[in-house]
Simulated scan of single mutants.
Amino acid sequence: MQIVLKFVKHGSPDSPVARFQAESCTACVPVTTPSFNADNPRETVVALRVPRRRSLELAFDGPRQTVRRVILSGGDVPFRSGPHGVVVQLPPVAADAITAAEVATHIVEPGMVLRFEHADPARRAGAYATGPFPDRQRRAANMLEFAQREVVRRLGLGEEVERDGLGRIQIMGFDTNAPHGHADAPPHVHMHLRWPGDTGTQIGHYYIGPDGLLIENIVGVKGLDAPQRRFGRGETFTTIASDGRALYSHRITTQGWLEIARPGGAACLIKPDGGAGFDAGVRVLCGDEPATRIAVTDDLRGVLTVLTGPLTEVFRYDPDTGASLSPSIVPAPPPSVFVAETEPEPRFVPRTDPRTPY
C-alpha cells in the first residue's frame, strides 16, 4: 500500500524535519514519484510503500522538537520521541492513503459537496512552484465555487440528485501545492456530477485566465475510452446523469462569464461584481430575482468568510489540514420532544354547509 505522512512543523524550519529510517521497517520502500514528497515552511511530506494491514512503528530522523503533528489522510496518528527523531504508530492500512498533503475544506449539503482549496504561497509546488503565484485566478476560483453552490441551491439540483440517487455534485477549484503529484494547472474550477461507481462521470475544467475571467471548458469522461472535448465561449456543455437525463448545463459566455441552467428551463448567470474579473466578487442572477452578490475571504489561518447578499457565513477550519471545525449537524432534540413523521389526519372536516351538523 502507498501512504503519505505529513509532519507538521513547529515554527518554520528551512529543512526537512523527518527522514525515514529504513531499518525500522525493512519491508517499507520510499516512494520517489515527483511531488509525492515535499518540504516547505509548514511541513515535511514523506511517501512510502508499506505492507498491507500491518501495525507498524516507523522511525524518522530529525529534531523531535520541530514536529508538532503527524497527519495520515485527513487525521492525526500518534507519534513519540525516538533515538534520533520521532517514531510514528501506523495503523493497519487496507488501501492507499495518499491525501495527507491536501489542504482543503469540504462543505457538504444534500446532493452536493464543495471542496475549497486553501492556496498558501508557503506551500507552493508543482506547476506553481516558481514564477508569479496565481493569486488573481485563485480568488476568482474562490468566488466561482461559492457562486456555483448558490446556483445549485437556487435550481434545486442538489435535492434532485439526492432524492433520485444520481450520485453527488462536486464543486472544486485547484490546488497550488501539487499534493500527491496533482499538478492541477492551469487554474480552473469544476462542477461535475460524480456518478455512482464513478465510471461515466463527466468532468469539466473551466479554465481561468490572468484577467480573472473564464476562457474555455475541457471535458473528460471517467472510465471510458472517450476523447476530451473542448467547449469555447458561447458553447453549451450539458451534464448527463447516470439514468440518461440531461441534468444541467454550463455555458461560458462571450464575455467570459458563466451561465448554469436546467436544459429548457430555469437559468442563472454568474457575472463579475464591478471589476473586470471574478476575483473582486460575483453576482448571481436567476430569472427575475434581484442579483445576489457573493464575496469570499480566506485568511489562511483557519477562517473562511462567505458573504451571500446580506448573509455572512463563517467556516472555521484546521489550517494544517483544511478539515472543517465548524458544526455541521444540528443536535438531536431531547427524547421527551415528540416530532411526528407525517402530518396527523384531522379528526373531522367541516362541511361546506354551516347548517349541517357535523
Score class of each variant (00 low, 15 high):
130 T>G: 10
335 P>N: 03
200 G>D: 09
85 G>T: 04
295 A>D: 15
294 I>N: 08
175 D>A: 14
18 A>T: 02
357 P>W: 01
177 N>A: 07
75 G>N: 11
16 P>A: 12
138 R>F: 15
71 I>N: 00
201 T>N: 05
193 L>Q: 11
46 V>R: 13
16 P>L: 11
236 T>N: 08
81 S>D: 15
213 L>F: 03
48 L>A: 04
108 V>W: 10
179 P>Q: 14
122 A>H: 07
307 L>R: 15
118 H>A: 01
138 R>L: 08
219 V>P: 02
211 D>W: 03
139 R>G: 01
257 W>P: 04
21 Q>G: 00
92 P>E: 08
129 A>P: 07
97 A>C: 05
238 T>S: 11
1 M>W: 03
159 E>T: 14
215 I>R: 14
44 T>D: 00
200 G>W: 06
108 V>C: 09
49 R>M: 08
167 G>A: 11
108 V>N: 13
348 F>Q: 10
152 V>I: 15
17 V>A: 08
158 G>W: 03
143 M>P: 04
276 A>V: 15
276 A>W: 02
254 T>K: 14
346 P>Y: 06
272 P>F: 00
131 G>I: 07
233 R>H: 04
106 H>M: 12
87 V>W: 04
262 R>L: 15
98 I>G: 02
41 P>R: 06
218 I>S: 11
207 Y>H: 12
314 V>Q: 14
175 D>W: 00
125 A>F: 06
119 A>D: 11
203 I>W: 10
178 A>W: 04
9 K>A: 05
303 V>M: 00
193 L>A: 13
237 F>I: 03
27 A>H: 08
171 I>F: 12
217 N>F: 04
295 A>R: 15
232 G>H: 11
241 A>R: 01
184 D>H: 10
220 G>H: 09
96 D>E: 14
347 R>Q: 09
52 R>F: 04
104 A>Y: 04
343 E>C: 11
251 R>Q: 15
16 P>R: 03
29 V>K: 07
311 L>A: 14
270 I>N: 03
38 A>E: 03
239 T>L: 13
305 T>G: 02
64 R>Q: 14
269 L>Y: 02
160 E>H: 13
131 G>Y: 07
209 G>M: 10
